[in-house]
Design a protein around this nucleic acid. Structure first.
Lengths: 243, 243
DNA sequence: CGGATGTTTGAAACGCTTCAATTCGGGTGG
DNA sequence: CCACCCGAATTGAAGCGTTTCAAACATCCG
């Protein structure tokens, strides 16, 4: 792949302007490429982990299984996102990680990261930003579950996903491909799959957004933003990170 | 204060055995002590921040205000917890931080942290663990909002808080003092204050837990653990963090 | 004593879940 | 090539958990 075109490079570039040499270091992190099949857990809940990954292609879901068998999805990962970084740092994983489709991911050892950071401190800063952004997304997700009704929750989710995908060149303000099932949405949004179906129908009939045949189409972007009170600042705000 | 008796030292000691010299470095982080009054925001939502704090005494709430005026509490901080650490790293804050009672907190600059880490790498490891634990708590909170009913949610919350307080010597398996109002609980658990009241009554009448006059009393600890499916592993598990 | 803050209770309304059943499309084996 | 099957999407009806509205009560504090 050409330098600077990996999803991660695109994502970080939205935050800091990376130099050519920094981009080279970044691409080198993508060297140990691996493939994984859909549905086969990358990390089992409770397992301790040794490597993290940078997702290069495909979609992944991070989830937590309850003792009663129900599942809460913590977040979805798309190309350019890290997988299992926290698990590596903590040497334990409190959640499972499963590819939704067949994926490509680059294995990253802690030593790789440390070496990269030593070479380019600005890269360390950018990656710290990425990790913190992940945390901010979890918090926003928490707010959604606690204080938004089903419609606004769905609207916010679809908008956030669209914004994330746009940042890595996989979507636009008009539409994006999305391999998630209504069961995925239900487990992420804390709803029943039946109700997800009804909510999607309502949003479609209201002319706001259409999710069909694996594609999300924004019929009325502004209207959807208003319904969800969506403020994308936490996804791509470009502020100075460290002095 | 005597060496090694700060709440933070107690908390970290549950994870790694800190040497005498490491404890000294840790106590030195507590030097710039400050007081703040209840109800006056430490950090406003949207404000960019310059300093983090280690909470020494009192309770603090981190929250997010919705455009419609409703509030979602992300977490409560108790002595030994960091305040605004992520805000400092990101140079922005997406949430507010407010003392619930009058508090004492030690100001910590990024430079202080970096110096401490340079002196004792093990301390850096321990603090990294603390930060990751905070994140794990947010995830657990997310699961509660998404997949637990009001009773289990309340039970889980009271148990987690009890476990956290025990770790810093402010509670036990029998009871702990707790200055939160039912409105705090409502905003944290994504419920209405009215329903919080009913849930508390039910748990009390079922002989599980009593929250009254600022004190939480566990009437049937095991029963409450069963109701909540509470597994405290993520709060104090003592595993090797880094090789 | 008055007022603010927090707790408690009742009744009605609503949002979402659960159960039950049908439809649709894609893949597979006969 | 078609019958079959399975996962996913869809719809209806009943039920329950939680919210909302309204109001009383208790406690602390100036």
């Amino acid at each position: 792949m050409a330098i600077g075109t990996s999803p991660l490079a695109r994502k970080l570039s939205a935050f800091v302007k990376l130099s050519a040499s920094e981009l080279v270091v970044l691409e080198r992190l993508h060297e140990r490429r691996k493939s994984f099949s859909a549905g086969r857990d990358l990390v089992h809940q409770g397992q301790s982990e040794q490597a993290a990954y940078i997702l290069a292609a495909g979609w992944v879901v991070s989830y937590k299984i309850q003792p009663d068998g129900s599942r809460q999805i913590v977040d979805f990962q798309i190309p350019g996102d890290f997988l299992g970084l926290r698990s590596v740092l903590l040497h334990t994983s409190d959640h499972g990680i499963e590819p939704i489709v067949d994926i490509e991911a680059a294995e990253v050892l802690v030593s790789d990261l440390l070496r990269a950071f030593a070479e380019t401190p600005r890269l360390a800063t950018a990656i710290l930003w990425a990790v913190s952004r992940d945390e901010a997304m979890v918090v926003e997700h928490l707010v959604g579950l606690g204080r938004r009704d089903a419609d606004a929750r769905m609207a916010h989710f679809l908008l956030e996903l669209g914004a994330r995908l746009s940042l890595v060149g996989m979507g636009s303000r008009q539409s994006y491909p999305c391999p998630l099932t209504q069961y995925h949405l239900a487990d992420a949004l804390g709803l029943s799959a039946i109700h997800v179906n009804r909510v999607l129908r309502k949003l479609r009939e209201d002319g706001l957004v259409t999710f069909r045949d694996g594609v999300v189409v924004f019929d009325d972007y502004e209207g959807l933003v208003a319904l969800a009170d969506f403020d994308p600042a936490y996804l791509d705000h470009a502020r100075p990170l460290l002095p």
